[in-house]
């Protein structure tokens, strides 16, 4: 028979292993990050998987943290916007978002960036802007920074590919 969990879970968040005592089984990953761990870079825009502002990487895959029960992710590795830069060195996606003005108010931006990082690692878009637009469509930007976002993803992807080539050489 199954067991009632102790409500204690382990997560690796931005490289840091954490033992987390959940106060309530209802806690979503998003509310765990924001309200318990005070990692507020991840944003709540709709809380229903409809806007993408809460996008984080779970075991390397981009997902909506608002529709993930924290308890269910026991053992997972989470990357949030706070874990992307290397100290003061921005991740190429972050730098490209600035260079291409891929945001205005900035509220959807952490989700856009995490989604872009996920998109690039999925490797399904190639350098086709239409595929990037389609695969970034889970992240709503009400300010309408889409053109800059698409350009930023293209450039960051190129940048990352070059880095990988350099590293491999």
């Amino acid at each position: 028979m199954g067991y009632h969990m102790s409500l204690s879970i382990r997560l690796t968040i931005n490289g840091l292993k954490r033992e987390i005592a959940l106060d309530d089984p209802r806690v979503t990953l998003l509310d765990l990050l924001r309200e318990r761990l005070h990692l507020t870079g991840t944003k709540k825009g709709c809380d229903r998987g409809q806007c993408g502002a809460c996008t984080v990487l779970v075991d390397g895959r981009r997902i909506n943290s608002c529709l993930s029960l924290a308890a269910s992710l026991d053992g997972a590795e989470i990357t949030t916007i706070e874990g992307l830069a290397d100290g003061e060195d921005l991740h190429p996606v972050q730098a490209a978002f600035i260079a291409h003005d891929g945001f205005q108010c900035g509220y959807c931006t952490p989700g856009q960036i995490m989604s872009a990082v996920g998109l690039i690692s999925e490797g399904n878009a190639g350098d086709d802007p239409e595929r990037i637009r389609e695969l970034m469509s889970g992240n709503i930007c009400r300010c309408g920074a889409y053109q800059g976002i698409t350009e930023a993803v293209l450039e960051a992807q190129k940048d990352l590919a070059e880095r990988n080539r350099r590293d491999a050489a």
């Binding site: 990692l39 507020t40 870079g41 991840t42 944003k43 949030t80 916007i81 706070e82 992307l84 830069a85 921005l90 972050q94 730098a95 978002f97 600035i98 945001f103 900035g106 509220y107 931006t109 952490p110 960036i113």
Partner: peptide, 10 residues
């Protein structure tokens, strides 16, 4: 930089 790193405080 604040906005792309999640450090802009809303």
């Amino acid at each position: 930089v604040l906005k792309v790193t999640g450090r802009a405080t809303y």
